[in-house]
Design a protein around this nucleic acid. Structure first.
Lengths: 255, 255
DNA sequence: ATACCACGGTTTGCATGCAATAATGTCCGG
DNA sequence: CCGGACATTATTGCATGCAAACCGTGGTAT
């Protein structure tokens, strides 16, 4: 039950490779919740759920406890767990919150990181992304590559901030699948203004690297904040076009 | 195991009034961890710990799981839990992070809250605090009252933000006892510049209310951020004067 | 001397079953 | 016909005990 790297959020792991029953239960249940398998507010009874998941109640309970901390279920003592409902405000705010924390991370990186050569990885990741976007049309395959690089980029900024607390805070926000920086990228790929959005992202990244390099903390911070707003544009666009299907975790939104 | 109101952080509850074994275990263990009862990195073996706490391993395990999410213990699968070590950077960053989130809350309150009469509670809480500080010397008793009002004030700003996500984020940060807005107040009471710091706090609050009232989001945000820095001043001062004892959770800091 | 493996004790992970509490249905009085 | 007390069922909370994974030790082969 370790989340090894930031932004490699839990949704990427598959239940099959779980090392323990409680981990399998956690992964499967989280997936079920994200898929909207439960009605909002629906009570999750332990015995039937355990039978369905093929685990006993003890690991199931541990899984529910974790998911409660991650915000997927609510808990009332001696009255069990209920599926959590999210609304648009939750998504918007979660994205903004991520922006604020990533903003702090970028600022810390700018203010604290001294050695230029430490920026090599960040710069190289940025270059690869810029290359992808520069070279003609993005295929689905290239988008997957972009997504991986994007996760790397965000993780590297976080690493450069050197702050465990920021890391923790971001981990906890990105538990919500729709709050992660990659949440909307597959959908963005389908958007009419797709190309523009990817280009804007890359330009944001470029400027962030530059700001960190020149120790421009305030600039780095506001850039990272604004960068997160692309996700909100995608959210609005997805809502308008009813293309929520491409976005992980958006099935369980109350409209 | 519900945290009903924000800022009424877990440390206030006593293990005696726990309704379940796992809750009692959580409260007791958290207290033990905060008191520095374990060496940093020390492995927490379930059987002896359970015996010491007078509960069985199942509720203890649930407690450990929760504390892992709160950041007090680390976990490695099949290798148990270990006591977490904190350092000065963790505290500083946690305080800054709180400032950032409270800043967002203040901004949201300014940008979203429309009706003036909704500010009545906030204003009244602020007035009471101002009164306390205005009327001569703060006794220990008055400081306790101040602390309660301070929690109320911060909770009210959060409430006015209307954001569940911010609430969640703040709850999670304030799990760390030294990150809460009240963490340093008892210590601040003992500081030579005590009076000035309380006055400064009240002035911050006044300005925050004003900014919210006039919909000055950016101002509200930066005020709330700066307001949190008072805690960092207290931290530095406590470090310099070696008066860490007055600050909850500062026994477990590696210097 | 070092690397490897076998093995015993220790510790975690989990399934089962029981007790206590909450939800639900039933019956009776108004 | 409706509301409240009580009985019944359903559901959570937990203790016990067992099995598997892990760690350290010692012995053996290279």
């Amino acid at each position: 039950m370790k989340r090894t790297t930031p932004y490699s959020s839990p949704n990427t792991a598959t239940p099959d490779q779980a090392t323990s029953q409680s981990e399998r239960a956690t992964l499967t249940l989280r997936e079920m919740l994200v898929q909207g398998r439960f009605l909002p507010g629906e009570r999750l009874r332990e015995v039937p759920l355990a039978k369905e998941l093929g685990v006993s109640r003890i690991p199931l309970r541990l899984a529910l406890e974790r998911l409660a901390h991650e915000g997927f279920v609510d808990t009332r003592p001696t009255r069990g767990f209920t599926a959590r409902q999210f609304d648009i405000a939750d998504i918007s705010d979660a994205i903004d919150l991520r922006g604020a924390i990533e903003g702090m991370a970028a600022r810390f990186a700018a203010e604290r990181n001294v050695r230029t050569e430490e920026l090599a990885t960040l710069r190289s990741t940025h270059e690869k992304m810029a290359e992808l976007v520069r070279n003609g049309k993005l295929t689905l395959e290239l988008v997957s590559e972009y997504i991986a690089l994007n996760a790397e980029f965000h993780a590297e900024v976080l690493r450069l901030s050197g702050s465990r607390q920021l890391q923790r805070a971001l981990d906890q926000i990105c538990c919500l699948p729709f709050a992660s920086p990659n949440a909307f990228l597959r959908r963005q790929y389908l958007a009419p203004e797709s190309r523009d959005l990817f280009q804007m992202s890359v330009e944001h990244h470029r400027a962030i690297v530059e700001a960190i390099e020149f120790r421009e903390g305030a600039r780095a911070e506001s850039l990272a904040r604004e960068h997160a707003r692309i996700a909100r544009r995608n959210l609005e666009s997805a809502l308008a076009n009813k293309t929520l299907g491409e976005v992980p975790g958006l099935q369980l939104i109350k409209l």
